[in-house]
């Protein structure tokens, strides 16, 4: 498992019903591509986050398949519609089977 994997997510605190909001996510992860070699010329095995999903109250917002060409500390910015108050669930799936999760509440006035 990659060390010190910390997800960071920015979601507005409140919104009006049906508003389109911008979400920014960042997760610290080395995203080892499998193309690099160590000092002895041996390839370093691939170790990346291969999938990222964002859901709001169980409904999908975005589902991203990541390949080794995504940079270290994968960053995503996208937009979501908020029909009602609830929580965003962010999930990252690691190659080694680990799953990292974060949730953010949003209040709709």
């Amino acid at each position: 498992m990659a060390d010190n994997v910390t997800p960071r997510v920015r979601v507005p605190r409140d919104a009006t019903a049906g508003e389109v909001i911008t979400i920014k996510t960042l997760i610290s992860h080395p995203m080892e591509s499998g193309q690099r070699k160590d000092g002895d010329g041996n390839p370093i095995p691939r170790s990346i986050i291969n999938r990222f999903t964002c859901d709001f109250n169980g409904q999908n917002v975005i589902d991203v398949t990541l390949e080794p060409a995504i940079s270290t500390n994968p960053y995503f910015e996208f937009q979501a519609t908020v029909p009602e108050s609830g929580a965003f669930t962010f999930t990252w799936y690691d190659d080694d089977g680990s799953v990292y999760e974060d949730t953010k509440e949003i209040a709709v006035s």
């Binding site: 389109v20 909001i21 911008t22 591509s33 859901d55 709001f56 409904q59 999908n60 917002v61 975005i62 589902d63 991203v64 398949t65 990541l66 390949e67 080794p68 060409a69 995504i70 940079s71 994968p74 960053y75 995503f76 910015e77 996208f78 937009q79 979501a80 519609t81 908020v82 029909p83």
Partner: peptide, 21 residues
């Protein structure tokens, strides 16, 4: 291959930005 973005029913706009190698 770099990435595939699949947009769900609550996607506000079919846009996304990221950083690639």
């Amino acid at each position: 291959a770099v990435a595939t973005f699949n947009f769900g029913p609550l996607a506000g706009a079919q846009m996304a930005s990221t950083r690639i190698r």
